[in-house]
Design a protein around this nucleic acid. Structure first.
Lengths: 337, 337
DNA sequence: ATGAAAGCGCTAACAA
DNA sequence: TTGTTAGCGCTTTCAT
């Protein structure tokens, strides 16, 4: 019962036709005669034949898979984008190869490696810290990035980061906050820069002070949010409201503040960014800016598939809308200062 | 500058040797003469040659990739296991193909599909709800499951689930709880069953009552944890301590209880399972059972690689230890009942 | 130590 | 509508 896997030859023999006909039956059924088709299908069923993807790919000069480059697989943020990517790649017959840029030595080199390895028909870049310079590889496959990136070297799916920051600041201001701080992501990340820019611009527009010592650097993790909270607690003159560049940091910040015996939003108002699943399950619920990560992944995949199929290399980039999600972690500022 | 990608032929020509020699130089350098080797390497560098993995795989009758089947990519639980898998698969030269069992119609059918598709040299199953019966496919590749599974149809990497449950219950009992409840995962999941069994056994051992109405069914998600909390709040006669089968549920439970105005652990003690990142950032910190998910992934990958390389099909399964992580979400039971 | 040659399993011209 | 045929790029006997 453990006999060799059937090849197209076996099917052809069983159906009494040529291998070409078998191949056609399977790829463009419309072009073969009804009777032949039935015979072939029957033979396929009998032999348990499955096309050998490797052989097919070799012949068709493609690989049937897409590489996804991301900085940190363990981060749930990327998991959701992956989910979106998979939802369009899988039905389209593409495999999704995951590569962690942080696991090797030089991330940029990894990118270069994959670009020239010919191992994929396309690449999705999710690492905002990679250098666009690494892209200049001769016969490289199409690349889409699902993250902010310097310049327009590559079509991308981005999010309204500046507007998100503005929504966050606007909400705090509307609640009466006039001392608003910010916790950023890592300095070299483009998301960090865009949101910080949005934050500054919003304060400016509202005529609120932008104090350098109220801008703390984090790295998007919960730990860095907790660290920011400790820094905030140690301040003489604290901002009453904070916009944090990621929900994870907001979670870390809020937990630390609460463990220090203060209350949110009584003592400090918090607005995050992402709307991760836990945001609504915290107490108080985390006010945040939603970015639809599954959609981001799905759109990126669609863009890439389009590029792969048409060969076009300059698809227009896309901007995905963000949405303000009011919950309870932001309220009026404390009366006494 | 955009000329075709170099093939092994081009290299052979440039180095003045046969393609066989080029191939040998690249795979078993020891077997070619020093001078030839240098010439070949030089030619490789000049042409920018990279072996075509598809052709190589076709010839060698392998695929160079491993399929990972999981129920839900968006769940951070799996993301960490993936991270562990990638950390050994990538260096070993295997690609990691991700497949979401939930996205299609019948998950079991998906498994069967991949088993017979010949698209991978091995498969890692992370979905505890798949039926082992689906495994009986003639020439299927090696399979490892990194999750509890019925029987020993397949080598697996598991976690001391029963002991974890016992640790949780033991901790609550030691704190003085005599009314202990449990929130399970989905009924058809093997993790659910094992932990529930461990829960029951522990109560038994301690001579504590096991009340059926104190066992609530969840599905591992935060939402289901919140739902369990509402059910708990509505009870006449509530357990004072709860063991929840996942941290995500514990998070949902705790948030809901807090939003209802009760305090943890003053009004109810909570112990989770997993030690997800957020556990330490909550307020109070979540007491839980740690399972090292990255290790689980890494060990599963090692097991699978061993099977692929040796052809062995009955590697011994492995059990990964769990660890009790005390934090503040469990305390003494309320005085008044 | 090296080369010649035979495919791996499939698809796509081109013919018929 | 179907069959014949020529590879896709590589690895691996088998000779030399």
């Amino acid at each position: 019962m453990d006999r060799k896997v059937a090849t197209i030859q076996d099917v052809a023999r069983a159906a009494g036709v040529s291998t070409a006909t078998v191949s056609r039956t399977l790829s463009k059924p419309a072009v073969v005669a009804r009777t032949t088709r039935d015979a072939v299908l029957e033979a396929v069923a009998q032999t348990g034949y499955r096309v050998n993807a490797t052989a097919s790919n070799l012949r068709r000069q493609r690989t049937g898979s897409v590489i996804v480059l991301l900085p940190n697989l363990a981060n749930s943020f990327f998991a959701q984008i992956l989910s979106g990517l998979a939802s369009v790649l899988t039905p389209a017959g593409y495999g999704m190869l995951i590569a962690d840029t942080q696991s090797g030595p030089d991330p940029d080199q990894r990118l270069a490696h994959y670009l020239s390895s010919g191992q994929a028909d396309g690449i999705v870049v999710l690492d905002g810290a990679l250098s666009p310079a690494a892209l200049s590889v001769p016969g490289r496959p199409p690349v889409v990035c699902a993250c902010e990136w310097m310049g327009d070297a590559v079509p991308s799916v981005r999010v309204e980061n500046e507007r998100g920051a503005a929504l966050a600041v606007g909400h705090l201001a509307r609640l009466g906050h006039r001392h608003i701080g910010h916790v950023t992501g890592p300095g070299d990340n483009v998301l960090t820069q865009t949101r910080l820019h949005g934050f500054r611009a919003a304060l400016d527009r509202l005529g609120l002070p932008m104090r350098a010592d109220w801008v703390l650097e984090g790295d998007f993790t919960m730990d860095s949010g907790a660290a920011a909270a400790r820094a905030w607690l140690a301040m003489q003159d604290r901002p009453t409201g904070l916009f944090l560049s990621s929900d994870e940091m907001a979670v870390g910040f809020m937990g630390e503040v609460q463990r220090a015996g203060l209350q949110v939003p009584l003592d400090v108002s918090i607005v995050g960014f992402d709307n991760i699943e836990i945001a609504q399950h915290l107490s108080p619920g985390l006010t945040t800016i939603r970015q639809p990560r599954t959609d981001i992944g799905a759109r990126a995949a669609e863009l890439l598939l389009g590029m792969i199929e048409t060969g076009a290399n300059d698809v227009p980039s896309e901007i995905i809308e963000v949405e303000f999600i009011p919950r309870s972690s932001a309220g009026a500022p404390p009366k006494v200062r």
